Amino acid sequence: MGVNAKGLILKEQNIGENDKLVTVLTDSLGVIRAFVRGAKKLNSKKQSATGLLCYSKLSFYKTKDSYIIDEAESIESFFGLRNDIEKLSLAQYFCDIAFELSPKEDDATDFLRIVLNSLYFLANGKRPPLLLKAITELRLVSLAGYMPNLIACEKCGAFETPIMYFDMERGLLYCDNCADETALFPLEIGVVSAMRHIIFAKIDILYNFKLSPEASEDLSYITEKYLASKVDRPFKTLDFYYSVKD
């Protein structure tokens, strides 16, 4: 059965001398694994279009046990990431998150749009990397069904106080009058507003906000820890990003 889809190559693995196995985040099929026959031959049109971080038009056919990529045409290769080890490592972390959280063999259009937009802004240097990291972490984990409740204080319903407190395990927010647990993480209201924006904004305006470097650090920390509380494995790509980060 033939299937056409657009997809981002999240992972690649060499198989023998000429073939490889790729993991792809597609719009209509979610995350799938597919074989690419002859991908490493010098004259293969599929070589560049099925490389890591390539976004391509793909034609698959499905056998009983696997997908095979029959044709591939590159749409975007994100070359701006290739010569910057910090950006490249962060991009690979985004791919890791997408692999972990995106649906398998089901529609994943919104997941794909988030990752592609984050890679675009990262490659072109149009947004601070820490801000892109926080957006990608929190929006993807929310799409996956772990959206925190940030509308108001869980106890009294207060929309905002100068400092609010976040329960990372339960994804709940408390005002400074109701917070009574030492395990809660304090957040300035600007960071809370940024988190609300990341969760609820339409994708077209999702990236249209700014934070101070200090607030960006706090936001990145809280989104990373919240994601970690919902995903039962460490990300080696994140560790590598921190090892090369300035």
Rank of each mutant, 00 (worst) to 15 (best):
I114K: 04
L10A: 01
I205R: 10
K6P: 05
N177I: 13
N43H: 09
L173T: 07
L238E: 01
N177R: 14
M168L: 12
I199T: 11
L143F: 14
S243F: 02
I75G: 09
T223Y: 01
V231L: 02
Y61I: 14
I135V: 15
E12V: 01
F159S: 12
F209L: 00
I151M: 13
T23C: 05
Y93V: 00
K126M: 07
T223P: 12
G145H: 03
P213D: 00
N149H: 13
A134Y: 03
L173G: 02
A34M: 15
L130M: 11
L8N: 01
I222C: 06
I85A: 08
K11Q: 09
F94V: 00
V22Y: 01
R233M: 05
G2C: 10
L131P: 00
A98H: 03
L8D: 01
V31R: 02
A34Y: 13
G190I: 03
A72N: 02
D232E: 05
I199M: 06
K40L: 05
Y67S: 09
A183I: 15
P234L: 02
E76C: 08
S59V: 13
L81C: 03
G171K: 00
D19A: 04
P103V: 06
V22L: 04
N117P: 03
M195K: 08
K236N: 08
E188G: 07
Y55E: 12
G190K: 01
S243T: 02
A39H: 02
K46G: 09
V31S: 05
T136P: 15
D110T: 12
Y207S: 07
K45Q: 12
F99D: 01
Y241C: 00
K133M: 15
K87R: 15
Y174E: 11
E181R: 15
L227F: 02
I205F: 04
F111A: 10
F94R: 00
V244Q: 02
G2Y: 15
R127N: 14
M147E: 15
L219E: 14
A152H: 06
L138M: 12
I198W: 04
E160Y: 11
G171I: 03
A98C: 11
D218F: 14
G30M: 14
T63E: 07
E86R: 06
R127K: 14
T136Q: 06
F99E: 07
D70M: 06
L52H: 04
M164Q: 08
L140T: 00
L42G: 03
I151H: 12
I163H: 04
K202Q: 11
L119I: 06
N177Y: 13
Q92Y: 10
N124H: 07
A158P: 05
G7N: 03
S77M: 10
C175Q: 07
E217D: 08
T136Y: 01
K236R: 09
L81H: 00
E12S: 01
E224H: 02
D180N: 13
A91I: 03
T237G: 00
E12A: 02
C95T: 05
F99S: 05
Y242M: 00
I15D: 02
F94Y: 06
D167F: 15
L122Q: 04
A194V: 08
P148V: 11
S212N: 04
F35R: 09
L58V: 15
I32Q: 05
K6S: 13
A39M: 12
G190P: 00
P148E: 09
L21E: 06
D204N: 09
Y61A: 13
L172P: 02
E86T: 10
D65M: 11
